[in-house]
Design a protein around this nucleic acid. Structure first.
Length: 286
DNA sequence: CCACTCCTGCGT
DNA sequence: ACGCAGGAGTGG
């Protein structure tokens, strides 16, 4: 559900509510997240010092404490990070609750499918290690140097552009929605190989990924069914999606019906005429 | 590259 | 009843 834009909205809405606050009295559901059960005791280090930072890199969100300990959060498909009155009924599928000391509020991690993760850490090295596996975040792709490096990296890979966009080691935070949107914006076929791109095309794709995610953030994120910010409010970008989820609808550019095709086990939405394979460009199917 | 896994919920 | 879902990992 959440890609970089949605996670950024969560970060922005939760940060002012928890910065300088201290957690206490963790509650855990005891159910595994991504097949792992985290014992409640593992969260006690998170109750010793106040929140110093709420950060994000791609889809990875973290809450850093003054002590250097903290929590990494990955929302998976259906994860929500909510803040609100602890007197309110705990939502179904709440797997972690941390009360905010001296207030009536609590932070809750809610995740029906349990594909997400909440990982406590006691030293910031753990965070550094996790971030080291990620490529640049789309929000930093307006940096000309970062964009050029990434464009060159794209041209060295043989995989299909759609797969490359979903590779978190290349574009941290681009998921299925924004990958489709970026390819449409750049007018590139999802099935083309990275190695077939010209430098200009590769750069256009990087810029399109940046623009697509930036628009998603400006619109408060995309809510297809699950996404909400830390206050439980839905996003608005689903109204402005150009191709994602619009199979059969008219392409906003040429009017041809949008196509859907399986790719890498997931759905790719695109406009066939607008996103042509280059005349000589090798395509992976289609 | 694909198939399959982890889960719940929703729309047809 | 079945297919599909914004993610990510594994194993072939």
């Amino acid at each position: 559900m959440p890609e970089a834009a949605e996670v950024e909205i969560v970060r922005r809405t939760i940060a002012p509510r928890i910065l300088r606050q201290r957690f206490e009295r963790p509650f855990t559901s005891g159910l595994p997240l991504r097949n792992r059960v985290i014992p409640k005791a593992a969260f006690t280090a998170c109750t010793k010092s106040p929140v110093a930072e709420v950060g994000r890199h791609g889809k990875l969100l973290w809450i850093g404490l003054e002590s250097g300990a903290g929590l990494m959060v990955h929302l998976g498909m259906t994860g929500r990070l909510l803040v609100g009155p602890r007197a309110e009924k705990r939502p179904l599928h709440t797997h972690l609750e941390l009360r905010l000391a001296g207030t009536d509020d609590a932070v809750r991690y809610v995740d029906p499918r349990r594909f997400g993760q909440v990982i406590p850490f006691s030293h910031p090295d753990a965070l550094t290690a996790a971030r080291a596996k990620l490529g640049p975040d789309p929000t930093e792709l307006d940096d000309a140097e970062v964009a050029a490096v990434l464009a060159r990296a794209l041209r060295r890979r043989k995989r299909a552009l759609k797969d490359l966009l979903l590779d978190q080691g290349l574009f941290a935070g681009v998921g299925n929605i924004y990958a489709c949107e970026a390819l449409f914006r750049a007018r590139l076929s999802p099935f083309r190989r990275g190695s077939g791109l010209s430098q200009a095309e590769a750069l256009a794709l990087v810029e399109a990924a940046h623009a697509a995610v930036a628009q998603g953030i400006a619109d408060g994120g995309t809510t297809l069914s699950d996404f909400v910010d830390a206050y439980g409010r839905k996003g608005g970008h689903q109204q402005s999606l150009l191709v994602f989820g619009r199979e059969g609808e008219a392409c906003p550019s040429c009017g041809t019906p949008i196509q859907r095709a399986p790719q890498g086990g997931r759905s790719t939405f695109y406009c066939h005429p607008c996103q042509r394979s280059a005349a000589r460009g090798k395509t992976l199917r289609r």
